[in-house]
């Protein structure tokens, strides 16, 4: 049974057809990357999965439950978690508080402190626990948000350009962090532009183009696909 499935998913914004009948299947335990040129509809697909937008038509199934019209917080409570492209953290609160707020929903008060410590260690943010989250470096902010996302103990982790603005070392460390999570059973779906990072983490890649699934396969199959090269670089390269 797929963990996530979209069936003939369509989204119109006025006269603009942004998502054009996307059929997409994500198996449990996968590390899957979603790529595509700008305007391909990646972010919209993410927002449809998260419930920030509702589709014009089509269905979204999560663990075989129809969540097409479910509110965002209901989807999160079912086990979906997200990391946004621009770090969505609570800047005026301390790093530890950020994690505490993410954890307190499902962790008993007596275990809260211990869980915060565990996450701080996992994220390499132990020394910054008392700092305001807004004062962290960009890479640390990204990690903190990943920490908040995994604090929910998700079954499915959605990542929108998780390494945007990171140094190569931070990007590699993030990849290792995600692989550790995946080994622990978390399914990962990431929108990413950095092909080195995609190669590091993805077991399967889906290419979106003009709101439709254009190609699917392993990273090597996608790189070798001339039609994919064409949509990235122009028709003359096909």
């Amino acid at each position: 049974m797929p963990i996530l499935e979209t069936r003939a998913l369509n989204k119109w914004f006025g006269g603009l057809h942004v998502t054009g009948g996307v059929d997409f299947v994500l198996e449990p335990g996968e590390m899957h990357c979603l790529i595509g040129p700008n305007g391909a509809g990646k972010s919209t697909l993410f927002r449809l999965i998260l419930g920030e937008h509702f589709p014009t038509s089509g269905e979204i199934l999560y663990e075989n439950h129809d969540i097409t019209r479910a509110k965002s917080y209901e989807r999160i409570r079912r086990g979906i978690s997200v990391k946004f492209q621009v770090p969505g953290i609570f800047k005026a609160l301390s790093v530890a508080q950020n994690l505490q707020i993410a954890l307190q929903h499902h962790v008993v008060p007596t275990a809260l402190k211990q869980e915060v410590e565990r996450l701080l260690n996992f994220l390499n943010l132990r020394a910054a626990a008392k700092q305001l989250a807004g004062n962290l470096s960009h890479g640390q902010k990204q990690w903190l948000e990943i920490g908040m996302a995994i604090a929910l103990k998700p079954k499915l982790l959605l990542l929108d350009e998780p390494t945007a603005g990171m140094t190569p070392d931070e990007t590699f460390a993030t990849g290792e962090m995600l692989q550790t999570l995946n080994r622990a059973g978390v399914t990962v779906l990431a929108v990413e532009h950095d092909m080195a990072f995609v190669r590091q983490i993805a077991q399967r890649v889906t290419v979106l183009h003009l709101g439709k699934v254009f190609a699917q396969g392993t990273i090597d199959e996608i790189v070798a696909n001339e039609r994919v090269a064409a949509i990235y670089l122009g028709e003359s390269h096909a």
Binding site: L50, V82, F84, F90, I101
Partner: peptide
């Protein structure tokens, strides 16, 4: 309290608060 944590989180970033499972 936990309630206070959430209302401050909503002040800081309502979208993130919702994406932590809270009905803002």
């Amino acid at each position: 309290s936990r309630f206070g944590n959430v209302i401050v989180a909503i002040r800081e970033n309502p979208e993130r608060a919702e994406m932590l499972g809270y009905d803002v």
